[in-house]
């Protein structure tokens, strides 16, 4: 069978979008990726090393971007305005009146990070030494040294798990599933750079569910003596020297605990993007109670939206590691390929 050549539009040029573009291209389709930022790569661009094996994120991303060639067309700085369809043809409108037509649309818009300032009691944006996991990762990427607001090496760094996850009051009941391992990975990285710095993790449950994640946990304890305190951070406040005072319940000790830390890192949860709501409201793509896209079938068909011709892949259907995001993107590509084959307008050349 020679491939049919159909047009597919992929919304989002992050890992899922790039991987799907490559797969679809290999299956013989022409693909246009619409990326809202200046460069493709999504959240992976701000990632230093990947858990659990410390592979360079930049290396992976470079390999993925190299695949953009031939019938893969990348349009950056593309702000999606509207999606419409007439019969089997979809029109994706972006920027000022530009439009691309396609026979299938893959939505791979990923996720946003929780807005940490909504957890007011943690003092992000108010206290000098509170940073987010994304900001810490960016420091690693840009080879910036980890220092407090006054330029000192922190004597103690505290990681706060579940910021914006498992928190109905903050609007999100779901577990973001990737923050535990991210936190442990980042904590180890700090210990490698600053062996004299004390690192503590404030967690509710440690959900080290992926392959080899538990090994990272053991490494954190055994090699780096990172301390794990089971208790969600209740509130933090600033000491006279602009260090932080953390208050939590040390649930396994059965007492409240107060700990001083020079810096606090908030492990931000994965939350739906504005685009999720837009797709839900304007185009009828089903949204789950967590705000992420709900596919056609939660077991048997995890990549087709209920709206015919629209597909979903990657973390836009819920938090996923890079490994699972890429697998999901390949799976979506096959679904799209099957859909295009079945399509009566298909012009299959045998």
């Amino acid at each position: 069978m020679r491939a049919l050549k159909k047009e597919v539009v992929i919304i989002g040029g992050g890992p899922a979008g790039l991987e799907a573009a490559d797969s679809l291209n290999k299956l013989g389709h022409a693909v246009t990726i619409l990326e809202k930022e200046e460069r493709p790569g999504g959240k992976l661009s701000n990632w230093h090393k990947l858990f659990p094996d410390n592979v360079s994120a930049d290396g992976i991303l470079k390999q993925m971007i190299q695949k953009i060639s031939g019938d893969i067309h990348l349009i950056t700085n593309a702000k999606i305005r509207k999606i419409s369809h007439e019969g089997k043809k979809y029109s994706v409108w972006f920027n000022e009146g530009q439009c691309i037509q396609a026979e299938a649309v893959l939505v791979a818009v990923g996720f946003d990070l929780f807005n940490a300032s909504l957890k007011e009691e943690y003092g992000y944006g108010i206290y000098d030494n509170v940073i987010t996991s994304a900001e810490l990762e960016s420091m690693f990427v840009n080879q910036k040294s980890l220092v407090t607001a006054t330029g000192k090496t922190p004597g103690r760094v505290a990681f706060i798990h579940c910021v914006g996850s498992r928190d109905e009051k903050a609007g999100f009941r779901h577990c973001s599933s990737m923050c535990c391992v991210t936190g442990v990975k980042q904590a180890i990285e700090i210990k490698k750079r600053l062996p004299g710095t004390d690192v503590m993790m404030f967690y509710m449950d440690l959900r080290m569910h992926g392959r080899f994640y538990e090994d990272l946990y053991l490494e954190a304890q055994e090699k780096h003596h990172i301390q794990f305190i089971r208790g969600r951070l209740s509130e933090s406040s600033e000491n006279p020297d602009s260090s932080l005072l953390l208050k939590a319940d040390d649930t396994l000790a059965g007492s409240p605990i107060k700990v001083r830390a020079d810096m606090m890192v908030l492990l931000l949860g994965f939350v739906p993007t504005d685009f999720h709501k837009k797709m839900g409201e304007e185009f009828g793509v089903e949204i789950g109670s967590d705000g992420f896209f709900s596919p056609c079938d939660s077991h048997l068909d995890t990549n087709s939206a209920k709206t015919t011709g629209i597909f979903v892949a990657g973390a836009c259907t819920g938090a996923k590691s890079l490994e699972y995001t890429l697998a999901d993107a390949r799976s979506a590509s096959l679904k799209i390929h099957e859909f295009l084959l079945r399509s009566p307008s298909s012009n299959i050349l045998n």
Partner: peptide, 10 residues
């Protein structure tokens, strides 16, 4: 303390 942060919150 970042006073601008508080003002934004207010």
């Amino acid at each position: 303390m970042i006073s601008e942060g508080k003002k934004t919150l207010w």
